[in-house]
C-alpha cells in the first residue's frame, strides 16, 4: 500500500477505462451470456427460445459420449503433465550441474516454448505420419500397423507426445530457476556427510523444489485442458471416432460447428468451474508459500 499518492478521481478512472472496457465487453458480458444460455434451449430453426433450467447440464452428464470425453481429457491431461514434468525435471537437474556448455544446453532446450501448439502438431506429423513421417514409416516397415488416423490409441499417444514435447521447455525453465535458488551450502553439507547424489536429490533437492513442482502441476493441467486445442485440431480433429476429443474441443465443435447454443454454453460453464477450481488450488498454494 502506497502512502504517498496523487489526488484526483477522474484521471485514474480514465487510465483504467481501456482495460475495463475490454474486460466488460469481451470477458464479463460473454461469460454472463454463456451462463444465461446454458439454461436456455432453442428449437431447430433458432426461432423460439425456452428456459429449461438445468436440463442442458442433465442431458450433458447423461450423454455417454460426454462422459467418454471427460475420461479422455483426464487421461490426456495427466499423461501430458507427468511426461513433460518428468522429462523437464531430469534435464533441469542435469543442466544445473557444473559442466561445460551448460549455457548452450539451456538455449537448445528452451526454444520449443516459442513454437505454437498447432505448429508443434505439424512438426509431429512429419515424425509419425504413416506414409511421410520418419517413425511412422519405420514402425510400418517393422510390421507394426501404425496409423494414428485410424487407431484411437495411437492417435492419443501422438497428441500426448506432441503436447508434452511443447511443454517441456516451459517446465525446464521453472525447474532450473527452482534448482538455482537452492542454497549450495545445504548440498555441500550433505555431500560432506557422505550422501550420494541420488540420496541428496530425494532427501534435499526434491522436497525443496516442491513449491515449483506444485505450481507447475497446476499450470500443466491448465495447459493440457485448454492450450492443446491447436495440437488436437491440427493432428486428429478429435478423431478417430472421438478418441482424442477433449472437453474444450467438444465445446468448440458443438458451439461453432453444430451451433448447439444451449449445450455448448453448458459445456462452457462446466469448463469455467474447472478453471475456477484450478485457480483456487493455485492460490491456496501461493498463500502457503508466503508463509514458507
Amino acid at each position: 500500500m502506497k502512502r504517498v499518492i496523487f489526488r484526483g478521481q477522474a484521471l485514474p478512472l480514465l487510465l483504467l477505462a481501456p482495460q475495463l472496457a475490454v474486460t466488460f465487453v469481451f470477458f464479463f458480458w460473454p461469460a454472463g451470456q454463456a451462463i444465461w444460455f446454458s439454461f436456455l434451449r432453442q428449437d431447430a430453426f433458432g426461432i423460439r427460445t425456452q428456459f429449461v433450467g438445468f436440463e442442458n447440464f442433465a442431458e450433458l452428464f447423461a450423454d455417454p459420449l460426454y462422459i467418454a470425453t471427460i475420461w479422455n481429457t483426464v487421461v490426456f491431461s495427466v499423461s501430458v503433465t507427468a511426461l513433460s514434468m518428468g522429462v523437464a525435471l531430469l534435464l533441469a537437474v542435469l543442466a544445473d550441474r557444473q559442466i561445460r556448455g551448460a549455457q548452450a544446453y539451456r538455449t537448445l532446450l528452451i526454444w520449443p516454448y516459442a513454437v505454437a501448439p498447432a505448429l508443434a502438431a505439424v512438426l509431429w506429423i512429419f515424425m509419425f505420419h504413416p506414409t511421410i513421417g520418419l517413425f511412422g514409416r519405420m514402425l510400418n516397415a517393422a510390421g507394426v500397423a501404425w496409423d494414428y488416423r485410424l487407431n484411437g490409441g495411437q492417435a492419443m499417444l501422438v497428441v500426448i507426445l506432441a503436447s508434452a514435447w511443447k511443454q517441456v521447455s516451459y517446465n525446464f525453465i521453472f525447474f532450473l530457476a527452482g534448482l538455482q535458488s537452492i542454497p549450495r551450502s545445504v548440498l555441500e553439507a550433505a555431500s560432506i556427510d557422505g550422501a550420494r547424489p541420488a540420496r541428496r536429490f530425494w532427501t534435499i533437492v526434491f522436497p525443496l523444489l516442491s513449491p515449483t513442482t506444485f505450481f507447475l502441476l497446476v499450470v500443466n493441467l491448465t495447459y493440457a485442458f485448454f492450450d492443446t486445442f491447436g495440437i488436437i485440431d491440427a493432428l486428429t480433429r478429435g478423431g478417430p471416432a472421438k478418441a482424442t476429443e477433449t472437453l474444450i474441443y467438444r465445446a468448440y465443435i458443438d458451439g461453432r460447428v453444430n451451433l448447439d447454443l444451449g449445450s455448448s454454453s453448458a459445456q462452457s460453464v462446466v469448463l469455467m468451474l474447472a478453471v475456477i477450481a484450478l485457480t483456487a488450488i493455485q492460490f491456496r498454494f501461493i498463500e502457503r508459500r508466503v508463509h514458507y
Binding site: 470477458f27 454463456a34 474444450i248 469455467m272
Partner: peptide, 14 residues
C-alpha cells in the same frame, strides 16, 4: 479465470 476457451460461442457472438 475466463480464458477464451470457456466462453467461445458468446464471445464470437459479441
Amino acid at each position: 479465470m475466463l480464458p477464451v476457451e470457456v466462453r467461445i460461442f458468446p464471445t464470437f457472438k459479441v
